[in-house]
């Protein structure tokens, strides 16, 4: 039945290539190898969200039992979102788990992920820290998400304050990403971040 997975992916690939979204550059899909079992997706951050202007790359692994099982999808581009792990890129989305349906396609999955970026579900979080910030310190969350989008996905918004704090930690010998992650987690409180790193 692996044949069905491959033949379907081939068709879906064509479908995505012909779709409106390609024309609008909002989703993209490309092959990683010749076996059609691993693909690379890309979604544009939806407008009016902190992710606007960013391009997010996704790893898509197609199981042999596709389409009776969902594809395994995770973010390769780092992202600050309550339903996506800021560490691993793992996604918490029902249709990629127990709410999958065999008629769904790569295109609908990518569009659903785009919708997820626009409408987070903090009550069903993948990353508890991000979800807490989203609910309790929403302004800070928006800033962090925009900053991450700028740092990793080519987003337009820069935050000199964030950059300087990261630079301070870097001067102490901390890797840039680790510094950003800790600062984001500690709501950009430099003292707490330092404490957390060196205690």
């Amino acid at each position: 039945m692996a044949n069905m997975a491959v033949s379907r992916i081939k068709r879906e690939f064509k479908e995505v290539m012909r779709s409106e979204e390609i024309v609008q550059c909002s989703i993209k899909i490309e092959l990683v190898n010749d076996s059609w079992t691993e693909l690379r997706g890309e979604i544009a951050g939806p407008p009016d969200t902190p992710y606007e202007g960013g391009k997010f790359v996704l790893e898509i692994k197609v199981p042999e039992t596709y389409p009776f099982n969902p594809p395994k999808v995770r973010f390769i581009t780092r992202i600050w979102h309550p339903n996506i792990s800021s560490v691993t890129g793992a996604i918490c989305l029902d249709i990629l788990k127990d709410n999958w349906a065999a008629a769904m396609t790569l295109r609908t999955v990518l569009l659903s992920l785009q919708a997820l970026l626009a409408a987070a579900e903090p009550d069903d979080p993948q990353d508890a820290v991000v979800a807490y910030q989203f609910k309790d310190k929403h302004e800070l969350f928006l800033m962090t998400a925009k900053h991450w989008t700028n740092a990793y996905a080519g987003g337009p918004h820069t935050f000199p304050d964030c950059d300087s704090k990261i630079q301070r930690l870097k001067d102490m010998g901390i890797e840039e990403h680790d510094a950003r992650a800790v600062l984001s987690k500690e709501n950009w409180n430099l003292e707490k971040a330092t404490e957390c790193l060196f205690s």
């Binding site: 099982n69 127990d98 999958w100 349906a101 065999a102």
Partner: peptide, 23 residues
């Protein structure tokens, strides 16, 4: 295909007994 979907054991029955298009 539809039989195979409905016999899928990895999902809840409420998922598999639903139409894969419209649920």
């Amino acid at each position: 295909c539809i039989r195979r979907w409905r016999q899928a054991k990895q999902f809840e029955h409420k998922i598999t007994r639903a139409c894969p298009e419209c649920r």
